[in-house]
Nucleic acid binder design. Structure first.
Lengths: 233, 233
DNA sequence: CGGCCGCTTGACCTGTGTCAAGGGATGTGG
DNA sequence: CCACATCCCTTGACACAGGTCAAGCGGCCG
């Protein structure tokens, strides 16, 4: 099965690790990559298991998490198309990963990726840039978890979803479809399901969001939401 | 002042970025590096300011933090000797940095470090490894901030200090000297000064720690402390 | 000596967690 | 096509961990 992927025709060519490579280098990458489809709600990296592979997300949304022995869980990030997955790694994965919806992945063996990095230093540079971005996001999340109120956390979260969807160019009025459940959001924001639900209701009462069919969120004023999320509420 | 540093004789040769280089390559590094001494309690990176430089800590302890407009603050990490500082950076620093005690720094300009990376890919590899470690630490901290109790947070923190001091080989009975104030610890753990103080008192009552002259902590059973910090308490 | 700073402790308050109930959507088997 | 179960979400009543406010102590320094 290995080696039969066509990276040049990949839908995420231009994103993630792949964007670091010229077309001819991609051919080499193809031999190391395997495309995988994971159904919704399936754990494909178990916390603490042997770290054989790295992944690149080519479709859908993945949640990364860490757990305590009694089952308390913290989702450390939701990662979408184009993102790389497996940096925070020694011999064992330091985190678990589960698909939020159906997900497509591009899988590389660690050893193969390492030899590829030797050959193409641009991959390494690309990974360093990605790691730096993840660090910035992690620091933002620490500020959120350590110092923000529930109201601010949910507003930050929704704004973050807008950044994920639109990048730099977020329109002043926007909509999002949240693929994750309230429980996932709670585990991401360090809250309980009940508090997340109550906070959505409060934001609705305050006309800061409109909630459609549960997963559909309308945001009439992005700037107002962003202000609340960053503590200027 | 630039270029007069002797990296080969540096006390942290063997740590951090420098350990990635052979002796002869170090000479090149010397020309790009400047040694700086910062007095205790001095902010040397302001959140959001232009990111001109990278730093390597060669003495003392530094706190990194992010703040909200109303003054709430989250310390994202304490970094000690050998650690690199400035990864989570775009054009502007995404965080502030302040010395906890007197600190020695090795400063590089961003542009010079970038040309050095071109020349010596081993630096890049080294930075990627460092970034991966920081990511793991950040994920642990998110779990702490999102899901642990005050009791568990303080125990985790003390255990973390032991790891910083002893590396892999932590003795079963140990001592630490904490250079940071209770307020710093509170801002790191997402608590208030009062709660940190009360929790230290509780740990003392439980004979899990012995508190000397305020900054001196004796830990009679490291394994017990570690168990509490990781939620097995 | 006086002022400041860091730390601790007490009394009280509140935001969020816990527990419990119920409703809507979806799926399944009879 | 209709029970019936399951899952996700919401809401209410109440509890509690940790925050807030206030007081006091000891050490350090000018």
């Amino acid at each position: 099965m290995e080696g039969c992927t066509n990276c040049a025709a990949c839908e995420v060519r231009g994103h993630g690790v792949c964007s670091a490579l010229a077309d001819k280098e991609l051919e080499r990458l193809s031999r190391a990559a395997v495309k995988v489809t994971v159904p919704a709600g399936h754990m494909f990296i178990e916390e603490g298991s042997d770290a054989h592979d790295f992944f690149n997300v080519t479709g859908g949304t993945v949640k990364l998490f860490k757990s305590l022995p009694d089952g308390r869980r913290q989702i450390t990030g939701f990662v979408g198309v184009g993102h790389f997955l497996g940096l925070a790694v020694s011999d064992h994965y330091a985190f678990g990963a589960e698909s939020v919806e159906q997900v497509q992945l591009c899988r590389f063996s660690r050893t193969k990726l390492e030899t590829l990095m030797e050959e193409f230093p641009s991959i390494e540079r690309r990974l360093l840039a990605e790691a730096a971005n993840e660090l910035v996001a992690a620091q933002d999340q620490m500020l959120l978890l350590g110092r923000k109120t529930a109201h601010e956390r949910v507003a930050s979260f929704l704004y973050g979803r807008l950044v994920e969807k639109y990048g730099e160019h977020i329109p002043p009025v926007a909509d999002i479809l949240l693929p994750m459940t309230r429980a996932d959001i709670a585990d991401f924001l360090g809250l309980t399901v009940e508090t997340v639900s109550r906070t959505f209701s409060r934001l609705r009462r305050e006309h800061l969001i409109g909630v459609g069919a549960g997963q559909d969120i309308h945001i009439p004023s992005v700037s107002r939401l962003e202000a609340i999320g960053s503590g200027d509420g």
